[in-house]
C-alpha cells in the first residue's frame, strides 16, 4: 500500500490561510489502512482545524467527507458539489489523490494534508516499513524476494556495504540491512552462488529517471474506443 503521514495541524492551517470554509477529504483506500487519511482521521482533523483556528482567533468552518478512492476521478465526482463549495480542500489522500482533485476540479483550491512516504506494509500494529521503490525494473528474482533498491539505504545491487552491523543498517538501527537478509536467505537455501557474478548497472530509466511514468495498454485503449463507438 501507499503509506503516508499527516502533516501537523498548524502547518495545514498555515497552508489554508485565508479560507473560511474547508473540506477535509479523506480517502478510503491505502491511507485508511495506514491510519493517515481515512474517514476517522478526516473527522478528527476537521475538528482539530476548527479548534486550532478558533484558538488562533480565526474562523474556519471545516467539515469532512471521505471518498472510496481519491486517485480515480469517478470516485471524486461523488463529492463534486462539496469540493466546489469549499474555499479549500484539505486532501487526506496520497500525492496521487491530492493531484487528482486539482485535475478533476481545476477551480478548486487544494492543500495536501499528508506527506506521502513510501510503498510499504505494516510489520506490526502501528509500524509500517518500505518494501518497494517502484523502480520499474524488478530484481526480486535475483535477490530472492528482498528488494535492495527500496530496502538498502544505498540501493546497492552487489551485496552489503561496510556499514552493516548485527544485521542492521548503519544509517539507523531500526533499519534491517537488506543485504544481510538477502545473504542469510540465499545461504540458507544453498543459493549464495547466485550473487557471485557482478550484477550490471541498473536501468534507472524505467524509474523516475526516465521522466514521469506512463503506461499505455493499446488493447484496453482500443476496447474503450470500440465500446464508445457502439
Amino acid at each position: 500500500m501507499i503509506v503516508a503521514e499527516q502533516k501537523p495541524v498548524a502547518k495545514i492551517l498555515e497552508m489554508a490561510a485565508g479560507a473560511q470554509t474547508a473540506l477535509v477529504l479523506g480517502c478510503g483506500t491505502c491511507v485508511t489502512v495506514c491510519f493517515a487519511g481515512g474517514d476517522k482521521e478526516a473527522e478528527i482533523l476537521a475538528s482539530a482545524l476548527r479548534m486550532k483556528a478558533r484558538l488562533d482567533g480565526r474562523e474556519l468552518d471545516a467539515a469532512h467527507l471521505t471518498v472510496q478512492r481519491q486517485c480515480e476521478w469517478e470516485y471524486l465526482d461523488t463529492a463534486a458539489d462539496r469540493i466546489r463549495q469549499a474555499d479549500v480542500v484539505v486532501s487526506l489522500g496520497c500525492g496521487v489523490g491530492a493531484q487528482a482533485i486539482v485535475e478533476r476540479f481545476p477551480e478548486a483550491r487544494m492543500v495536501p494534508g499528508l506527506d506521502t512516504r513510501f510503498y510499504g506494509l505494516p510489520t506490526r500494529h502501528g509500524v509500517w516499513e518500505e518494501r518497494c521503490a517502484g523502480c520499474g525494473d524488478c530484481v526480486l528474482d535475483y535477490t530472492d524476494g528482498i528488494c535492495p533498491v527500496a530496502r538498502c539505504s544505498k540501493s546497492l545491487l552487489n551485496g552489503p556495504c561496510g556499514g552493516s552491523h548485527d544485521g542492521k543498517c548503519e544509517v539507523d538501527d531500526a533499519i534491517p540491512c537488506a543485504w544481510h537478509e538477502i545473504v542469510e536467505r540465499l545461504t540458507s537455501r544453498g543459493e549464495l552462488e547466485r550473487l557471485a557474478e557482478v550484477h550490471e548497472p541498473k536501468n534507472w530509466r524505467a524509474a523516475r529517471d526516465g521522466g514521469p511514468g506512463r503506461i499505455v495498454r493499446e488493447d484496453l485503449v482500443r476496447d474503450a474506443q470500440d465500446g464508445a463507438g457502439t
Partner: peptide, 23 residues
C-alpha cells in the same frame, strides 16, 4: 577496491572480495 573484513555478514566478506576480483 576495499573490503571491511569484520563487517557483517562476516562470512560473506571473502566472497565479496572474490566478486570484486572477478570484476
Amino acid at each position: 577496491a576495499v573490503e571491511s573484513p569484520f563487517a557483517d555478514p562476516v562470512a560473506y566478506r571473502p566472497f565479496r572480495v572474490a566478486k570484486k576480483v572477478r570484476a
